[in-house]
């Protein structure tokens, strides 16, 4: 009996489970195994309870098979394997759940680690926002960059809100995912992605800047994007956008470039680093504007043309129209045709 017990269970402790299943087992082994379980006094009582519950289910399951299979499979039979399997699965599930819960809890407890980066006063944030638009011509001495994340985070969320606004008014239709997810993905992707990329370049070019400073620098650089996009999503003027793009986008780019130049040595590294950053920053603003703005232009063009179809009709045809955006006349024709056929 004891041999059989040891064989079916890889873990000796598992005998406890078999005690529940094989109620007819010898009393000596029962006691031995029971001693095992109760012997270690540092067990979590709650966990024990949980396991007992799991095992009760397993026992019930095994009892069902016992009725079918009879007594012959007592030593190496189905129920031993089944019970063991069930217990292992339950154990795995329990452990995975516990790991998840403790991970979530640790994350929440680790908020304290992030707290120093959010240690700012309102007036400091305001000053940094203003400073992000003022390039400083001082390249001989490394300029100070505050390692702070409150401002960048809030600017990114503001940019998300502005992008949502822009997407809604431009009638952007996104097949996979939601507007919200796209906006968040774009903003955070740009912020984190470009920061890490520039940090990597800075590492290659031997620039003295930390990841935190890079995040802060680029995050505050997004202030110009917020201003420009907020204005141009509400007022649709191409010339106004280009003006704002050059002035605000240029100023914030110059500020970041000045900081990076002051922290890099040598002509070529400076050129590589600053050229990359400036190009990415300016082009991103251009992209954000036109990706969610051009469609409005398309609609307006369509509406201004002759034989104006109802607005709803055009809006429905938008998905088709996007693919052939440059030929708005086609969309118009399609809309008119659709109405005629109806």
């Amino acid at each position: 009996m004891s041999e059989g017990n040891k064989n079916t269970n890889t873990e000796p402790w598992g005998g406890f489970d078999d005690n529940l299943i094989q109620r007819g087992g010898s009393a000596v082994i029962d006691m031995e195994n029971m001693d095992d379980t109760s012997g270690s006094s540092f067990e979590d009582v709650g966990e024990m309870h949980q396991r007992m519950k799991d095992e009760e289910e397993v026992t019930a399951e095994a009892a069902a098979t016992e009725e079918e299979g009879g007594e012959d499979g007592e030593f190496l039979g189905m129920k031993g394997i089944k019970g063991q399997l069930g217990r292992q699965v339950a154990d795995e599930v329990w452990r995975a759940g516990k790991r998840q819960a403790s991970k979530a809890f640790n994350l929440y407890a680790n908020i304290d680690i992030l707290r120093p980066y959010f240690d700012v006063e309102p007036i400091q944030v305001r000053n940094r926002l203003i400073e992000s638009l003022i390039p400083v011509r001082m390249i001989n001495f490394p300029q100070k960059v505050a390692g702070e994340l409150y401002g960048p985070m809030m600017l990114v969320f503001t940019l998300v809100a502005i992008l949502l606004h822009g997407m809604k008014t431009s009638g952007t239709v996104i097949r996979e995912g939601t507007l919200m997810g796209t906006a968040i993905g774009t903003c955070f992707g740009y912020w984190l992605g470009v920061s890490s990329f520039i940090y990597f370049l800075a590492y290659l070019c031997n620039a003295q800047i930390t990841m935190l400073q890079m995040l802060s620098l680029l995050g505050y650089g997004l202030f110009s994007h917020c201003v420009v996009l907020f204005v141009t999503y509400s007022v649709h003027f191409h010339s106004l956008f280009y003006l704002l793009w050059l002035v605000f986008g240029g100023l914030s780019t110059l500020r970041m470039v000045a900081v990076l130049i002051s922290r890099t040595v040598g002509q070529t590294p400076r050129l590589i680093l600053c050229g990359t950053l400036a190009a990415l920053h300016m082009l991103f603003l251009l992209y954000l504007h036109f990706a969610y703005h051009k469609i409005v232009e398309g609609i307006l063009d369509t509406l201004e043309g002759p034989n104006v179809p109802p607005i709803q009709r055009v809006a429905r045809d938008l998905p088709n129209a996007i693919t052939v955006l440059n030929a708005t006349g086609k969309a118009l024709a399609a809309g008119a045709d659709a109405i005629l056929t109806q």
Binding site: P12, D36, S40, G46
Partner: peptide, 26 residues
């Protein structure tokens, strides 16, 4: 006996990770 067994028990491996402070509320 209990200590010897504990060394090679996967079931108790999970239990031994549990700190005592977590036991107390239960």
């Amino acid at each position: 006996m209990a200590e010897v067994d504990e060394a090679n028990k996967p079931l108790f491996a999970g239990l031994s990770d549990v700190s005592i402070s977590e036991d107390i509320p239960v």
